[in-house]
C-alpha cells in the first residue's frame, strides 16, 4: 500500500487541477478574458452574463465617486467604460493592465472583481523609463 501512496497523491492532484480548470472556466471556451474590441464587435456580449474583460486603464479617466470607481479600459483599438464596485487592487493605477469580472449592458461594464495584469517590464525608479505596453493584450 505504502508503495502506491505517492501514485494516489499524484493522480488525485492531477484530477483536482483538471476538474478545477474545467469548473472555474467561466464561459467554457477557454478564453481567460475578452478584449474591448471583441465585445464591441459581438452583439451577443451584452446578454452573455458574467465574463472577464481585460485591458489597460486609460490615463485621465479614473474617477472614484465613493460608491464605485469609474474608468475606461482599452486594448489599443477600442475603449470600454467600467464601473467597479469594491476596493480596487493595491497596484491599480492609470496605465496598468486590469482584468475585471462582471456583466456588460452594451455601454458600461459593471465589475465587482478586479485582478491586476502585471506586464513583463521591470524598471528601477531612477534608471529606466517605464513604457506602458503598446501591444496590449
Amino acid at each position: 500500500m505504502r508503495r502506491y501512496r505517492l501514485f494516489i497523491i499524484a493522480a488525485a492532484g492531477l484530477l483536482a487541477v483538471l476538474i478545477g480548470f474545467l469548473a472555474f472556466n467561466l464561459r467554457g471556451d477557454l478564453v481567460y478574458y475578452r478584449t474591448p474590441t471583441e465585445i464591441l464587435d459581438d452583439p451577443a456580449a451584452a446578454a452573455a452574463g458574467r465574463f472577464r474583460l481585460g485591458g489597460q486603464v486609460v490615463p485621465g479617466t479614473v474617477v472614484d465617486d465613493g460608491e464605485a470607481v469609474q474608468f475606461e479600459i482599452t486594448d489599443g483599438t477600442a475603449t470600454v467604460a467600467v464601473s467597479h464596485r469594491g476596493v480596487p487592487q493595491q497596484l491599480f493605477r492609470e496605465g496598468i493592465g486590469v482584468v475585471v469580472e462582471g456583466t456588460w449592458d452594451g455601454e458600461v461594464f459593471s465589475s465587482d472583481s478586479m485582478i491586476i495584469k502585471h506586464d513583463e517590464q521591470y524598471r528601477t525608479e531612477e534608471g529606466g523609463v517605464y513604457t506602458p505596453d503598446s501591444r496590449y493584450p
Binding site: 501514485f7 499524484a10 492532484g13 487541477v17
Partner: peptide, 10 residues
C-alpha cells in the same frame, strides 16, 4: 508538478 510526482511514484 503532479505528472513528475507520478514519475517518482513509478
Amino acid at each position: 508538478f503532479f505528472v513528475y510526482l507520478g514519475y517518482l511514484a513509478l
